[in-house]
C-alpha cells in the first residue's frame, strides 16, 4: 500500500508537489506526464486515462487512492 509520504518520496526528485496532501497539484501537462510515468515505473502499476480523469483535480491524496486501487 502506498501512503502520501511514500508517494512524496517517489515523486520528489521529478516534480514539485504542494505541501498539503489534499492541495491540487500545479503542474504543466508535461510534468503531469512525468508524474504518471514515475508512478507507473516506480510502483509497477498501469494507470488508465479514465481513472486519472476521474481523479482530477490531482492531489497527493487522490493519487495515493488511485495507485492503491490500481495495484
Amino acid at each position: 500500500m502506498s501512503t502520501p509520504e511514500s508517494l512524496r518520496q517517489l515523486l520528489r526528485a521529478h516534480v514539485a508537489l504542494p505541501a498539503a496532501d489534499d492541495a491540487p497539484l500545479e503542474l504543466d501537462s508535461f510534468d503531469e506526464v512525468v508524474l504518471i510515468e514515475t508512478l507507473e515505473e516506480g510502483l509497477a502499476v498501469t494507470l488508465r486515462a479514465a481513472d486519472v480523469a476521474a481523479a482530477r483535480p490531482l492531489t497527493v491524496q487522490g493519487l495515493c487512492a488511485l495507485v492503491n486501487k490500481t495495484a
Binding site: S29, E32, A53
Partner: peptide, 9 residues
C-alpha cells in the same frame, strides 16, 4: 492542448 495528460494517456 486543453488536457495534455489526457491526450498522452
Amino acid at each position: 492542448m486543453v488536457d495534455g495528460l489526457d491526450v498522452y494517456m
